[in-house]
Amino acid sequence: MSEAKTNETVHLTIDGREVDAPKGAMILDVARGMGIDVPSLCAHPGLEPFGACRLCVVEIQKPGWDDWYKQLVTSCLYPVEEGLKVWTDSDEVRQNRSVVLDLQMARVPESDYIRELGRQYGVEKTSYAERDTKDTCIMCTICVRACEAIGRSAIATLSRGPDKYVDVPNKDACIGCLVCASLCPTDAIPFTANDNGKRRIWDKEFDLVTDERTGEVLGTPEYLAHVQKRAEGNGLVWPETLKQESAKVKRYEYARKLSRVADVEDRLADEAK
Protein backbone atom coordinates (compact mmCIF):
# COMPACT_ATOMS: atom_id res chain seq x y z
CA MET A 1 0.00 0.00 0.00
CA SER A 2 2.97 2.28 -0.11
CA GLU A 3 2.57 5.21 -2.40
CA ALA A 4 5.24 6.58 -4.70
CA LYS A 5 6.81 3.29 -5.53
CA THR A 6 10.29 4.07 -6.70
CA ASN A 7 12.79 1.77 -8.25
CA GLU A 8 15.02 2.15 -5.24
CA THR A 9 15.68 -1.05 -3.44
CA VAL A 10 17.13 -1.89 -0.08
CA HIS A 11 19.12 -4.92 0.87
CA LEU A 12 18.17 -6.87 3.95
CA THR A 13 18.35 -10.30 5.51
CA ILE A 14 15.26 -12.29 6.48
CA ASP A 15 15.81 -15.52 8.36
CA GLY A 16 19.36 -15.61 7.12
CA ARG A 17 18.37 -15.19 3.47
CA GLU A 18 19.47 -12.05 1.72
CA VAL A 19 16.95 -10.18 -0.35
CA ASP A 20 16.54 -6.95 -2.27
CA ALA A 21 13.20 -5.33 -1.68
CA PRO A 22 11.62 -2.17 -3.04
CA LYS A 23 11.96 0.74 -0.66
CA GLY A 24 8.77 1.35 1.28
CA ALA A 25 7.60 -2.27 1.13
CA MET A 26 6.58 -3.82 4.41
CA ILE A 27 8.53 -6.66 5.97
CA LEU A 28 5.45 -8.88 5.93
CA ASP A 29 4.95 -8.57 2.19
CA VAL A 30 8.62 -9.06 1.44
CA ALA A 31 8.84 -12.14 3.66
CA ARG A 32 5.71 -13.64 2.18
CA GLY A 33 7.07 -12.90 -1.27
CA MET A 34 10.06 -15.04 -0.32
CA GLY A 35 7.73 -17.86 0.60
CA ILE A 36 8.14 -17.39 4.34
CA ASP A 37 4.93 -18.07 6.20
CA VAL A 38 4.26 -15.18 8.55
CA PRO A 39 0.88 -15.57 10.23
CA SER A 40 -1.49 -12.65 10.39
CA LEU A 41 -5.16 -12.16 11.12
CA CYS A 42 -5.76 -8.52 10.35
CA ALA A 43 -3.61 -7.91 7.29
CA HIS A 44 -5.17 -7.92 3.84
CA PRO A 45 -3.10 -6.80 0.86
CA GLY A 46 -5.92 -4.63 -0.44
CA LEU A 47 -6.61 -2.83 2.82
CA GLU A 48 -4.67 -0.32 4.87
CA PRO A 49 -2.34 -2.12 7.27
CA PHE A 50 -3.83 -1.98 10.73
CA GLY A 51 -1.45 -3.73 13.09
CA ALA A 52 -3.99 -5.00 15.56
CA CYS A 53 -3.63 -8.76 15.69
CA ARG A 54 0.04 -8.71 16.68
CA LEU A 55 0.53 -12.13 15.14
CA CYS A 56 2.87 -10.99 12.41
CA VAL A 57 5.44 -9.72 14.91
CA VAL A 58 9.04 -10.40 13.95
CA GLU A 59 12.35 -9.63 15.57
CA ILE A 60 14.61 -7.12 13.94
CA GLN A 61 18.09 -5.81 14.39
CA LYS A 62 19.30 -2.66 12.75
CA PRO A 63 22.88 -2.28 11.58
CA GLY A 64 24.94 -0.81 14.36
CA TRP A 65 22.94 -2.30 17.18
CA ASP A 66 24.63 -4.41 19.81
CA ASP A 67 24.67 -8.05 18.82
CA TRP A 68 22.43 -9.16 21.65
CA TYR A 69 19.83 -6.47 21.13
CA LYS A 70 16.77 -7.20 19.06
CA GLN A 71 13.42 -5.55 18.87
CA LEU A 72 9.97 -6.95 18.25
CA VAL A 73 8.09 -5.10 15.54
CA THR A 74 4.88 -5.54 13.61
CA SER A 75 5.95 -6.73 10.20
CA CYS A 76 2.79 -5.56 8.42
CA LEU A 77 3.62 -1.97 9.34
CA TYR A 78 7.38 -1.91 9.35
CA PRO A 79 8.99 -0.75 6.11
CA VAL A 80 12.14 -2.54 5.07
CA GLU A 81 15.41 -0.79 5.75
CA GLU A 82 18.91 -1.10 4.39
CA GLY A 83 20.93 -3.67 6.27
CA LEU A 84 18.06 -4.82 8.44
CA LYS A 85 18.19 -8.30 9.90
CA VAL A 86 14.85 -10.00 10.45
CA TRP A 87 13.90 -13.19 12.24
CA THR A 88 10.37 -14.34 11.59
CA ASP A 89 10.33 -17.44 13.72
CA SER A 90 12.68 -16.95 16.68
CA ASP A 91 11.86 -18.18 20.18
CA GLU A 92 10.82 -14.71 21.29
CA VAL A 93 8.55 -14.36 18.26
CA ARG A 94 6.96 -17.77 18.82
CA GLN A 95 6.53 -17.08 22.51
CA ASN A 96 4.66 -13.86 21.86
CA ARG A 97 2.56 -15.36 19.11
CA SER A 98 1.56 -18.15 21.42
CA VAL A 99 0.51 -15.70 24.15
CA VAL A 100 -1.44 -13.67 21.62
CA LEU A 101 -3.19 -16.77 20.31
CA ASP A 102 -3.81 -17.92 23.86
CA LEU A 103 -5.55 -14.60 24.49
CA GLN A 104 -7.53 -14.92 21.26
CA MET A 105 -8.64 -18.40 22.22
CA ALA A 106 -9.93 -17.04 25.49
CA ARG A 107 -11.77 -14.38 23.56
CA VAL A 108 -13.34 -16.65 20.94
CA PRO A 109 -13.46 -20.14 22.42
CA GLU A 110 -15.81 -21.25 19.64
CA SER A 111 -13.56 -20.40 16.71
CA ASP A 112 -12.08 -23.44 15.01
CA TYR A 113 -9.79 -21.28 12.94
CA ILE A 114 -8.13 -19.72 15.98
CA ARG A 115 -7.93 -23.10 17.69
CA GLU A 116 -6.14 -24.55 14.68
CA LEU A 117 -3.74 -21.61 14.54
CA GLY A 118 -3.12 -21.92 18.28
CA ARG A 119 -2.25 -25.56 17.87
CA GLN A 120 0.52 -24.57 15.46
CA TYR A 121 2.03 -22.55 18.26
CA GLY A 122 1.59 -25.16 20.91
CA VAL A 123 -1.53 -23.77 22.51
CA GLU A 124 -4.01 -26.60 22.87
CA LYS A 125 -6.24 -24.91 25.37
CA THR A 126 -6.31 -21.37 26.60
CA SER A 127 -4.73 -20.72 29.97
CA TYR A 128 -6.98 -17.76 30.63
CA ALA A 129 -10.59 -17.18 31.50
CA GLU A 130 -12.74 -17.95 28.46
CA ARG A 131 -15.45 -15.58 27.43
CA ASP A 132 -18.83 -17.15 27.61
CA THR A 133 -19.87 -16.47 24.05
CA LYS A 134 -20.53 -18.03 20.69
CA ASP A 135 -19.29 -14.90 18.97
CA THR A 136 -16.08 -15.49 17.06
CA CYS A 137 -15.18 -11.91 16.21
CA ILE A 138 -11.52 -11.22 16.92
CA MET A 139 -11.72 -7.50 16.12
CA CYS A 140 -9.35 -7.64 13.16
CA THR A 141 -11.60 -4.98 11.55
CA ILE A 142 -11.03 -6.36 8.06
CA CYS A 143 -14.79 -6.03 7.58
CA VAL A 144 -14.72 -2.40 8.73
CA ARG A 145 -11.87 -1.49 6.46
CA ALA A 146 -13.32 -3.37 3.50
CA CYS A 147 -16.68 -1.67 3.94
CA GLU A 148 -14.90 1.66 4.03
CA ALA A 149 -12.95 0.80 0.87
CA ILE A 150 -16.16 -0.14 -0.90
CA GLY A 151 -17.41 3.30 -0.01
CA ARG A 152 -20.20 2.48 2.40
CA SER A 153 -18.61 2.51 5.87
CA ALA A 154 -21.70 0.80 7.17
CA ILE A 155 -19.66 -1.31 9.55
CA ALA A 156 -17.98 0.46 12.41
CA THR A 157 -16.18 -0.32 15.60
CA LEU A 158 -18.16 0.92 18.53
CA SER A 159 -17.21 1.63 22.12
CA ARG A 160 -13.66 1.02 23.24
CA GLY A 161 -11.33 -1.16 25.22
CA PRO A 162 -12.31 -4.76 25.90
CA ASP A 163 -15.94 -3.82 25.23
CA LYS A 164 -15.19 -2.72 21.71
CA TYR A 165 -17.33 -4.46 19.14
CA VAL A 166 -18.18 -4.40 15.48
CA ASP A 167 -21.65 -3.58 14.28
CA VAL A 168 -23.71 -1.78 11.68
CA PRO A 169 -25.23 1.16 13.52
CA ASN A 170 -27.15 2.36 10.50
CA LYS A 171 -28.74 -0.52 8.59
CA ASP A 172 -29.55 1.77 5.66
CA ALA A 173 -25.88 1.99 4.78
CA CYS A 174 -25.50 -1.76 4.29
CA ILE A 175 -25.89 -2.87 0.66
CA GLY A 176 -25.74 -6.58 1.32
CA CYS A 177 -22.64 -7.20 -0.77
CA LEU A 178 -21.41 -9.93 1.63
CA VAL A 179 -17.80 -8.80 1.26
CA CYS A 180 -17.43 -8.46 5.03
CA ALA A 181 -18.64 -11.97 5.66
CA SER A 182 -16.51 -13.47 2.93
CA LEU A 183 -13.34 -11.78 4.18
CA CYS A 184 -13.89 -12.55 7.87
CA PRO A 185 -11.11 -14.91 8.92
CA THR A 186 -13.17 -16.46 11.71
CA ASP A 187 -16.56 -16.49 9.97
CA ALA A 188 -18.02 -14.29 12.65
CA ILE A 189 -20.56 -12.56 10.45
CA PRO A 190 -23.65 -14.73 9.96
CA PHE A 191 -25.52 -14.40 6.67
CA THR A 192 -27.74 -16.20 4.22
CA ALA A 193 -26.73 -15.47 0.65
CA ASN A 194 -29.93 -16.60 -1.01
CA ASP A 195 -32.92 -17.99 0.72
CA ASN A 196 -35.94 -17.93 -1.58
CA GLY A 197 -34.77 -14.80 -3.29
CA LYS A 198 -33.92 -13.08 -0.04
CA ARG A 199 -30.56 -12.30 1.47
CA ARG A 200 -29.90 -11.70 5.14
CA ILE A 201 -26.90 -10.12 6.81
CA TRP A 202 -26.43 -7.76 9.78
CA ASP A 203 -30.07 -8.33 10.75
CA LYS A 204 -31.25 -6.80 7.51
CA GLU A 205 -33.19 -8.52 4.76
CA PHE A 206 -32.52 -7.79 1.12
CA ASP A 207 -34.27 -8.56 -2.14
CA LEU A 208 -32.19 -10.07 -4.89
CA VAL A 209 -31.93 -9.17 -8.56
CA THR A 210 -31.42 -12.04 -10.96
CA ASP A 211 -30.48 -12.25 -14.62
CA GLU A 212 -33.67 -13.04 -16.43
CA ARG A 213 -32.06 -15.34 -18.93
CA THR A 214 -29.73 -17.34 -16.71
CA GLY A 215 -31.35 -16.97 -13.33
CA GLU A 216 -27.97 -16.02 -11.92
CA VAL A 217 -28.09 -13.81 -8.83
CA LEU A 218 -26.58 -10.42 -9.59
CA GLY A 219 -26.83 -8.92 -6.13
CA THR A 220 -29.15 -6.79 -4.12
CA PRO A 221 -30.77 -3.73 -5.68
CA GLU A 222 -28.85 -1.58 -3.19
CA TYR A 223 -25.62 -3.18 -4.31
CA LEU A 224 -26.31 -2.65 -7.99
CA ALA A 225 -27.29 0.96 -7.38
CA HIS A 226 -24.09 1.52 -5.44
CA VAL A 227 -21.88 0.09 -8.16
CA GLN A 228 -23.65 2.19 -10.73
CA LYS A 229 -23.20 5.34 -8.68
CA ARG A 230 -19.58 4.54 -8.13
CA ALA A 231 -18.98 3.85 -11.79
CA GLU A 232 -20.68 7.05 -12.81
CA GLY A 233 -18.60 8.90 -10.27
CA ASN A 234 -15.59 7.58 -12.15
CA GLY A 235 -16.96 8.89 -15.43
CA LEU A 236 -18.04 5.52 -16.75
CA VAL A 237 -21.11 5.14 -18.91
CA TRP A 238 -23.54 2.67 -17.59
CA PRO A 239 -25.82 1.19 -20.23
CA GLU A 240 -29.23 0.47 -18.79
CA THR A 241 -29.43 -2.96 -20.34
CA LEU A 242 -26.20 -4.07 -18.73
CA LYS A 243 -27.47 -3.38 -15.28
CA GLN A 244 -29.26 -6.62 -14.87
CA GLU A 245 -27.24 -8.98 -16.99
CA SER A 246 -24.76 -11.55 -15.85
CA ALA A 247 -21.26 -11.71 -17.24
CA LYS A 248 -22.21 -14.66 -19.32
CA VAL A 249 -25.13 -12.91 -20.99
CA LYS A 250 -23.09 -9.77 -21.53
CA ARG A 251 -20.41 -11.84 -23.22
CA TYR A 252 -22.88 -13.61 -25.44
CA GLU A 253 -24.59 -10.41 -26.46
CA TYR A 254 -21.31 -8.79 -27.30
CA ALA A 255 -20.15 -11.75 -29.34
CA ARG A 256 -23.42 -11.68 -31.23
CA LYS A 257 -23.09 -8.00 -31.89
CA LEU A 258 -19.58 -8.38 -33.20
CA SER A 259 -20.48 -11.28 -35.39
CA ARG A 260 -23.14 -9.12 -36.99
CA VAL A 261 -20.47 -6.64 -38.03
CA ALA A 262 -19.94 -8.89 -41.05
CA ASP A 263 -23.27 -7.64 -42.34
CA VAL A 264 -22.10 -4.11 -41.82
CA GLU A 265 -19.04 -4.74 -43.95
CA ASP A 266 -21.17 -6.12 -46.72
CA ARG A 267 -23.37 -3.07 -46.55
CA LEU A 268 -20.36 -0.77 -46.64
CA ALA A 269 -19.01 -2.64 -49.64
CA ASP A 270 -22.37 -2.29 -51.39
CA GLU A 271 -22.48 1.40 -50.74
CA ALA A 272 -18.96 1.75 -52.10
CA LYS A 273 -20.19 0.29 -55.37
Binding site: V144, C147, E148, R152, S153, A154, I155, A156, T157, L158, S159, R160, V168, P169, N170, A173
Partner: peptide, 12 residues
Protein backbone atom coordinates in the same frame (compact mmCIF):
# COMPACT_ATOMS: atom_id res chain seq x y z
CA UNK B 1 -18.95 11.43 7.56
CA UNK B 2 -20.55 7.97 7.38
CA UNK B 3 -22.94 7.34 10.24
CA UNK B 4 -20.92 4.35 11.36
CA UNK B 5 -17.94 6.58 11.95
CA UNK B 6 -20.00 9.16 13.79
CA UNK B 7 -21.40 6.45 16.00
CA UNK B 8 -17.91 5.03 16.47
CA UNK B 9 -16.61 8.40 17.65
CA UNK B 10 -19.65 9.00 19.84
CA UNK B 11 -19.16 5.67 21.61
CA UNK B 12 -15.38 5.90 21.80
Amino acid sequence: VPFGKVQGVATF
